[in-house]
């Protein structure tokens, strides 16, 4: 009903001022961007011809590239996404526990956990991949770690929120019976957060399938490597096949996730 309320109440002068300030800043920023951004008009004129050329080069799709290279790369991508998600779940679990207000009582620990979660999320997965390629060398291991480190923030944050929503009743019952802390967690918290835990895991796995498909562009393994090879050799018919494969896998992952979600959760 806030929408209705907004129609009937006039804004305060301060609100109106803020809105005008926003419009002014937005227009100024946009005008400045359009003026300074480097766009070469000749390239734009050429674009329709280039797009026609792109599709002409992509057709017919080079199906023989699939058994040669793409299949192995695709399997590797699936392993990167899955193993990366498992690793992320393992790493995010303690961080999530540390970040939950009803489990961790020391603010300093919670702040530390929040810091880990925020820094994991604010670094793009491609940057994580670049870092791990520099450390472990190019390959699937770097991609797996990049996926894992990128996912910690997401999984940990949602897990902490799920823990904070847990009902106090079972916890207090077990504490009153003198159960040790691990038992309290396993028998009071875990059954309550388990559905959201698996839901978070599935959701993240779906995202990770998409992300792991591009990690190969920076050398971190998977189908992105096959894409990068085909691109640098300008074999557009192979690029087309790789894109089709990525598209089908993304759709398939979404169907699988929806199916499991409806069966288990």
């Amino acid at each position: 009903m806030t929408a209705a309320a907004r129609v009937w109440h006039r804004f305060t002068p301060q609100q109106r001022l803020m809105r005008y300030a926003f419009y002014l800043i937005a227009v100024a920023a946009l005008v400045q961007s359009v003026r300074t951004v480097e766009i070469i008009p000749e390239f734009l004129e050429d674009a329709p011809a280039q797009i026609v050329d792109l599709f002409a080069r992509m057709w017919p799709v080079d199906w023989s590239y699939y058994p040669k290279t793409v299949h192995a790369a695709l399997i590797e991508t699936l392993h990167i996404a899955t193993l990366g998600t498992i690793l992320a779940l393992g790493l995010a679990f303690p961080v999530g526990l540390m970040a939950a207000t009803n489990i961790t009582r020391w603010p300093a620990v919670r702040l530390f956990a929040k810091f880990i979660l925020v820094s994991s999320r604010s670094v793009n997965s491609l940057v994580w991949a670049l870092l791990f390629v520099a450390i472990f060398g190019p390959g699937a291991l770097a991609g797996t770690l990049a996926i894992a480190f990128r996912s910690i923030g997401f999984v940990g944050k949602l897990l902490a929120e799920a823990l904070e929503e847990a009902n106090r009743g079972p916890v207090e019952a077990l504490v009153a019976s003198g159960a040790p802390a691990p038992t309290v967690f396993l028998k009071a918290y875990w059954p309550q957060v388990q559905p959201s835990f698996w839901s978070i895991a599935l959701f993240r796995w779906d995202i990770n399938i998409r992300e792991s498909a591009v990690l190969g562009l920076v050398g971190a393994g998977g189908i992105g490597m096959a894409l990068d090879d085909a691109l640098s050799l300008l074999y557009w018919d192979q690029v087309a096949l790789t894109l089709l494969t990525i598209f089908s896998v993304v759709i398939a992952a979404e169907i699988v996730v929806t199916y499991i979600r409806s069966r288990i959760l």
Partner: peptide, 24 residues
């Protein structure tokens, strides 16, 4: 929605050349 922005960017780099326009 189905393609990662990076992949879309690759296609636009081919279509409109290197530079900010492809990213936009």
């Amino acid at each position: 929605r189905s393609f990662h922005p990076m992949i879309v960017a690759i296609l636009f780099v081919k279509a409109v050349g290197f530079g900010a326009l492809a990213g936009i």
